[in-house]
Amino acid sequence: MPSVTYIEANGASHVIDVPIGENVMHGAVYNGIEGIIGECGGGLACATCHCYVDAAWTGRTGGPSSQDETDMLESTAAEVRPESRLSCQIVVTAELDGLIVHLPEKQF
């Protein structure tokens, strides 16, 4: 199973196995990582699963996957950067094994 490393704003790091086909938001929420909230459950409706994809991985994750994701990123509480994504929209694949995401200080 691919692993995803979540690095919280305070530097705490969590390595989580996330099944292929599951999204990066669920990988955090189901494993008690508090830096991602994902209150709407993955429907591009709340902007509380904001993450910064590590520079080494942005080529593989790509940018926002839809105009809706780009629009919703404007509703995040923390600063939006070029590597910002809503983690519910990053679906784990074999190619993303080892993915590193950094979590913002706040989600709302």
């Binding site: 909230i37 209150e39 709407c40 459950g41 591009l44 409706a45 709340c46 902007a47 509380t48 105009q67 809706d68 629009d71 919703m72 404007e74 509703s75």
Partner: peptide
């Protein structure tokens, strides 16, 4: 532009 709508609330008790 897509924004947060409140039909289902938000927060931890956001509609399942």
């Amino acid at each position: 532009p897509k924004k947060i709508i409140l039909a289902f609330t938000v927060g931890v008790h956001s509609c399942m």
